[in-house]
């Protein structure tokens, strides 16, 4: 049947696999947005900029830091970056939350959106000024160079790693939030912050750390992306709008929903590229419009 459409099953499998890879990026990013939204009730517009920061800081660690220190051996390699970069960028997120976002909680949530939009402009502008826009290249780490022959396609080892790493992080986040005591505080804080506070939980601290964690997730996705995409100041901006659409489709009610929708839309986008590549840029937006007509709250959302 596929042959009728000019597509061999082999080609289809490989395209689905690639869809899965892109879907894992969507999943990590929309998960971060959903976690932040759950507790802070704001949409983090600087999520894309923070993703870009993750990629850039990793690149800086690999290529610039040794130069700064004048010591070519002092390289922050990929593995170190995978741990350090989310911490650094996450700390930056904590700083933003403590100094700025915090002042807006009593106001309309739209101000949070506007503030993070402004921050996104600043971050993007600064990196643009420092490193130009034509982009930097990040080497794929030695272990992951080369590809695995799956029979129907050559899967680059690094891409396989991306899926494994992204899904692991998603699963761990989901597990912590839905199945542990810490997560139960978090969920309680989401439902009723004042009551939770009354039970002796430090809600403001929890909010700060949650924002930091969401930002760290974005940075983590950035580090994962650095070796495959050109590291450039505008890499996050266009991506984040697609992720917003993903979030609208999924609805931000559940953590699992954010993950599943992210992966599913990656797959759908992959299929579009096979059958009708011209539409692959808009397919997610079209799905968003349809979902809004049929189920305005989103696939996994609850009407508030």
């Amino acid at each position: 049947m596929f042959e009728l459409l000019g597509i061999t099953p082999q080609a289809l499998y490989s395209q689905l696999l690639i869809g899965l890879i892109n879907g894992s990026f969507y999943a990590v990013l929309s998960l971060g947005l959903a976690i932040i939204f759950g507790l802070l009730n704001i949409i983090n517009f600087s999520h894309g900029a923070q993703y870009m920061m993750g990629a850039f800081v990793a690149w800086i660690g690999l290529t610039q830091v040794p130069q700064w220190l004048g010591n070519p051996d002092f390289v922050i390699n990929y593995w170190a970056a995978l741990v350090l970069v989310p911490l650094i960028v996450g700390a930056f997120g904590v700083f933003i939350e403590r100094t700025m976002l915090r002042r807006l909680y009593k106001l309309d949530h739209l101000y949070g959106l506007l503030l993070t939009f402004g921050i996104a402009l600043i971050i993007e502008g600064l990196f643009r000024d420092w490193y130009g826009v034509s982009g930097q290249q990040y080497e794929i780490p030695e272990v992951f160079q080369g590809a695995i022959n799956l029979g129907f396609m050559f899967l680059p080892k690094y891409r396989a790693w991306v899926v494994v790493a992204a899904l692991t992080v998603c699963f761990v986040s989901w597990y912590v939030i839905e199945r542990t005591k810490l997560g139960s505080y978090l969920r309680a804080g989401t439902e009723n912050p004042r009551l939770t506070q009354a039970f002796g939980v430090n809600v403001p601290l929890m909010i700060t750390l949650t924002y930091g964690y969401g930002v760290a997730l974005a940075a983590f996705a950035g580090v994962l992306a650095a070796p495959i995409f050109t590291v450039s100041p505008k890499m996050g901006a266009d991506l984040i709008i697609v992720v917003f659409a993903v979030v609208v489709i999924g609805g931000m009610g559940s953590i699992l929903g954010a993950i599943v929708t992210g992966i599913a839309l990656g797959l759908i986008e992959g299929l579009t590229r096979v059958f009708y590549p011209e539409a692959s840029a808009v397919v997610i937006f079209v799905i968003m419009a349809i979902v809004l007509l049929v189920r305005p709250a989103g696939l996994f959302g609850r009407e508030r």
């Binding site: 503030l115 939009f117 402004g118 402009l121 600043i122 502008g125 600064l126």
Partner: peptide, 14 residues
């Protein structure tokens, strides 16, 4: 320019 626009944004909101 973009940085300055961003800063104005942040100041306005805060």
């Amino acid at each position: 320019v973009q940085v300055i626009m961003g800063i104005i944004f942040v100041i306005c909101v805060l």
